Amino acid sequence: MKILVTGAAGFIGAHCVLRLMRDGHQVIGLDNFNAYYDPQLKHDRVRWVRGQVGDFQIARVDLADAAAVDALFVRECPQVVIHLAAQAGVRYSLENPQAYLNSNLSGFLNILESCRHHPVEHLIYASSSSVYGANQHTPYTVHDDVNHPLSLYAATKKANELMAHSYSYLFGIPCTGLRFFTVYGPWGRPDMSPIQFARAITEGLPLKLFNYGMHQRDFTYIDDIVESIARLTVHPPHTHPDWDREHPDAGSSMAPWCLFNIGGHHPVELKTYLALMEKHLGQKAIVELLPLQPGDVLNTCADTDDLAQATGFQPRIELDEGLGRFIAWYRDYYPTACRPRAVRG
């Protein structure tokens, strides 16, 4: 199929492009190469993908530019859209909220409008485990309501799910939302904890461990993320005429719309995660223990039964193995490439 991947120079996007091209799909990428972190890493990801599977087209387009997004749809006529581009980061949303409105809301609206006026067979879009917010009923299931977000980032992702549902209902666009849980692996973002922790440990810098290292995260290795996306790409949701309006299920709809958790379903305390990092690096961390930060969720754990039922697959790469792969890449890449930002923990 002909597939448009937004955020194609991003962490998940680059891995997704690589997998889809290996599967024989024709892929068109979109990215604005913004400076949220050093754009050199994005260019290096693109070179890495091209080195594996050959050239692929990537349009330098800002999602907030409605005319440019529409022109790309007119020119390329994608059958499937995998929308991964977004302004990411919970804590950064406290510093620059406008960036989240421009990218995550206006940008997503432009994608939906283009899918409306240039019909596609399937729109897959990235949501986030952060939408569960104040909900502490774990494991998190897509069938629970998520009406108490704890950050603007989470609120924009919840809004994306609602926006997609309205367009799915009104215009028949098959929409699948994916709630990702703490994705990690090679080519990850430098504002995420794996690179932050690895840098702090290897350079002997103080490492900030919030909530005193006691909160848990459901870490999910990047290969499990793209495997899930690849399997779901060819299975668009259908209408559910028997959907019960009087007892509505939050994870499905009478419209061709659905949600899936994509998570490792094995939550790990951050203290354990740090110990594994120290083991693979062969060095001990200098740790500064701090309280929980505003916007952070205490614990995450994904119920992935729906994903297994739909695709026959559940994330399976254990954290110890995944971190070993990540550290091997980190040692190879960072001696000669851009340095990550200051440690946030």
Rank of each mutant, 00 (worst) to 15 (best):
H25P: 06
G188L: 01
Q196L: 02
V226M: 04
Q216E: 13
K284R: 15
P186D: 09
V46Y: 01
P237H: 08
D303Q: 06
G51C: 15
L4V: 11
V120H: 08
E278V: 09
A250R: 14
T239W: 08
D320H: 10
D31R: 07
A9S: 15
D31V: 08
E227P: 03
M1C: 06
T239R: 13
S228Y: 03
Y36I: 01
L290A: 15
V81D: 10
A99P: 14
T300A: 11
L162M: 07
I222M: 08
D332S: 14
R331E: 09
H137P: 06
D144C: 07
A126P: 12
Y334A: 02
G282R: 11
V61L: 13
R179W: 07
G177A: 06
E121N: 12
D23K: 07
Y330Q: 13
F180M: 10
H240D: 15
D145C: 13
L152Y: 10
T300I: 00
I58P: 01
Q283V: 03
W187E: 05
L150R: 06
T176E: 10
K271W: 01
L205W: 12
Q98G: 15
G107L: 00
T311Y: 05
E288A: 14
D23N: 11
L162Y: 07
H247E: 09
L4K: 07
D306P: 03
Y153S: 04
F260P: 09
E321Y: 11
S228E: 03
E318V: 01
Q314W: 00
H43V: 04
M1N: 13
L94V: 10
